[in-house]
């Protein structure tokens, strides 16, 4: 289960071209994208064709696919996993405004099996009830992966500005992991670092819809395997960025595979204790004036989250054990 980044490619099936959000979300990537190449080799054309096919598999988001009854009936199973395996602990859910749309911004850990998402969505659903509309933005790959279609019933939708906009305007709580694939595959020795990689789309999203940002800080996820490298060079060489919109081909040592390249089949996460702290809501226009500066808000949110993560790290006595 990999709930990932709020980025969209302009070629995304459901992100309308010319959408201002698409530009916002993409801004960060724009600098990295190679200039358009007029001549393309056969291999590149093949890659592009395959990318089109894969994109076609990404389901157009239908917020109606979220199924409260399904979520409710699966809560006991989630609770078992979160309580017994991950000994999850979620603090401060009272900071989330009781009603109305809110943007929950989390740091993301644990490779493609992200225990923090499991623990948090369970806690959110039991705290506010499954009736409260709650969506999680995920990487396209998660939603198009065979066999993971059931995730849509939990409210997981493809991370696109369009979807985020629709979810927020419907009054829902939306969980986004700006760090996405970049953060989730960071090496284990950087486990206590918030690494959003400069992705500021979430700030613009919150400003545009005038919704509060509630930071959600999790620790423990990066101890569920030994993450060695993001494998960005490898991903580039294999053209995965063009094919699948992933910039990483992570390398880790994980159960039951041993050396695990790509994490495409997932892995069995070690039973590391997951602690999550929800921070007080940040009302952007109240705190930063009528026209908040995106960079300032971004710096404030990431610094606050890093401080909390440091405190959680100081509280932790041993890796995995907690």
């Amino acid at each position: 289960m990999q709930a990932q980044t709020a980025r969209a490619s302009s070629g995304d099936g459901h992100a309308a071209d010319g959408d201002p959000f698409a530009r916002d979300f993409d801004e960060h990537e724009a600098g990295e994208r190679p200039p358009a190449q007029p001549r393309r080799g056969p291999l590149e054309r093949l890659v592009d064709a395959a990318a089109t096919v894969i994109r076609g598999r990404v389901p157009a988001a239908d917020l109606d696919e979220r199924d409260p009854d399904f979520i409710r009936e699966s809560l006991p199973a989630q609770w078992l996993l979160a309580s017994l395996w991950f000994r999850g602990e979620v603090r401060g859910l009272g900071h989330v405004p009781e009603h109305g749309p809110v943007l929950l911004v989390g740091n993301h850990s644990g490779g493609n099996m992200t225990p923090d998402t499991l623990v948090f969505t369970l806690a959110f659903s039991t705290y506010f009830g499954v009736e409260r509309r709650f969506y999680q933005l995920a990487h396209n790959l998660v939603l198009s992966w065979p066999g993971l279609g059931f995730l849509r019933k939990y409210g997981i939708v493809a991370a696109s500005p369009d979807n985020a906009e629709r979810a927020l305007s419907s009054g829902a709580a939306v969980l986004v992991y700006p760090g996405g694939d970049h953060e989730v595959h960071r090496p284990s020795w950087e486990r206590n670092r918030v690494s959003f990689d400069g992705r500021r789309g979430f700030v613009r999203l919150a400003l545009e819809h005038d919704v509060p940002i509630v930071p959600v800080v999790a620790i423990g996820g990066q101890e569920t395997a030994l993450f060695l490298s993001r494998g960005e060079g490898l991903a580039r060489r294999l053209m995965l960025d063009r094919l699948l919109r992933v910039k990483v081909l992570p390398i880790s040592i994980a159960a039951p595979w041993g050396l695990n390249v790509g994490d495409g089949l997932g892995h069995i996460p070690l039973p590391a204790k997951i602690t999550i702290e929800v921070l007080p809501a940040i009302h952007l226009r109240e705190q930063f004036g009528a026209q908040p500066d995106v960079d300032e808000v971004y710096a404030h949110v990431t610094a606050t989250m890093q401080e909390t993560l440091d405190a959680l790290a100081a509280e932790r006595r041993l890796p995995i054990v907690g």
Binding site: W79, V90, A123, T126, G129
Partner: peptide, 13 residues
């Protein structure tokens, strides 16, 4: 109502 049991606060109206 909410009661903390395991990893979640569980209850309802």
């Amino acid at each position: 109502t909410l009661m903390r049991v395991g990893s979640a606060e569980i209850g309802g109206l």
